[in-house]
Simulated scan of single mutants.
Amino acid sequence: MAQGQVSGLISFPLTPFTADDTVDTGVLADHVAAHVAAKPTAMFVACGTGEFTALSVVEYRQVLTTALRVVAGRMPVFAGVGGGPRVAREFLSAAAESGVDGVLLLPPYLVAAPPAGIVDHVRYVSTVADLPVVVYQRANAILDPAAARALLDVPTVIGIKDGEGDLERLRSLISAVRGSGHPRAEEFVFLNGLPTAEVAVPAYRELGVDGYSSAVLCFLPEIATAFYAAVQREDEETVRTLLTEFYHPFAALRDTTPGYAVSLVKAGARLTGTPVGPVRPPLREVTPEHLAQLKEIIERGRAALAAIRAVA
């Protein structure tokens, strides 16, 4: 699989749960189909937005199998992998057996480690399957330039997804990789993986990072795709309007409560007609007050998009 396929607008579907706390594969299939219709460049299932840490291996296989069946080869499908080193290996083996195109390696569970230790973890986990790996930099998995260069020597690692948001650090990682002289340096991928990544798209693009994950695709695909199209054609007015009217208010509400990067997205999906069910603990459901605010933000975003289209 070419690394260039992991770029552009990337989808991160939710994992729906039933009232009796099982994975709702029927709703998941419909949810994935809606993502496919939005035509992202790739799909990452059972990752952070998909509540990877809440899934058993059996449920994980259900999610991957369902997504792959619906996508039917129309785009690359990556799966989340994480936990401690042995657990991550177990999930990576399950991902490989399912037939996904690659994995997103989430930070290791709990343990803090120096950047070189993160590289060791990546190397240890990735050896169990010949699948492309994107390393997720965030929380307790922070890299430095030497670590970024070292990842080039791990054959299956194709890139870094940044969820930290330190642009100067990211600039140093990009420079270290691109200037390394390594045969894979130019094809190595960097992705914007911040929560509500659209807010940071202009800043990341200045670093040459064009690909980003969009949780908004889960509940307002019309806004997510319109924003991406505006970015691509350098329509600064549309970008600014959607940031002001929708993305900034949504991100501000998200920041009020830990875990809302997932809970708020699930609530948005329910509000817009997809019965994805509840989040699993330790995530908490959105409060009634915040749910009312979310509804207003969704309506405000839709109104802004309608106004943009009316004058187009």
Rank of each mutant, 00 (worst) to 15 (best):
E198D: 13
G193C: 05
V125S: 08
A150H: 11
D120R: 15
L217R: 06
G165V: 12
A197C: 07
V216G: 01
L104E: 06
F227V: 04
R171T: 14
Y136T: 03
L104T: 06
L143T: 06
P107Y: 01
I160S: 03
R138N: 14
L110Y: 11
I174M: 07
S214H: 07
G193A: 06
Y136K: 07
L106M: 15
I158F: 11
V134E: 06
F190L: 03
P145G: 10
S126C: 03
E186M: 04
A224F: 03
Y228E: 10
L207F: 04
S213C: 11
A146R: 08
L110F: 13
C218V: 06
A150F: 09
A146S: 02
G165N: 06
G117W: 01
V201M: 14
L167K: 01
E186D: 15
L217H: 08
S172I: 11
S126N: 10
P155R: 15
A147V: 01
A203R: 14
G193F: 04
A226Y: 06
A226F: 04
H121T: 07
R123M: 02
L191A: 09
G159F: 01
V128I: 13
I160M: 08
L194E: 10
D144Y: 03
R184Q: 12
S172H: 12
L194P: 11
S172N: 08
L151P: 15
N192C: 12
V135W: 00
I223C: 02
D130S: 10
G159H: 10
A129C: 13
P145W: 10
I158E: 00
A185F: 09
I160E: 05
P114V: 11
F219L: 00
D210R: 14
Q137F: 01
P145Y: 08
P107K: 00
V157T: 07
D120W: 11
P183E: 03
E206P: 04
F227Y: 14
D144S: 04
A141Y: 05
R171N: 13
P202G: 09
G179I: 01
L173T: 05
V199N: 11
V128W: 10
A129E: 15
A113W: 13
A200R: 02
D144M: 06
V177Q: 08
L170W: 10
V128K: 12
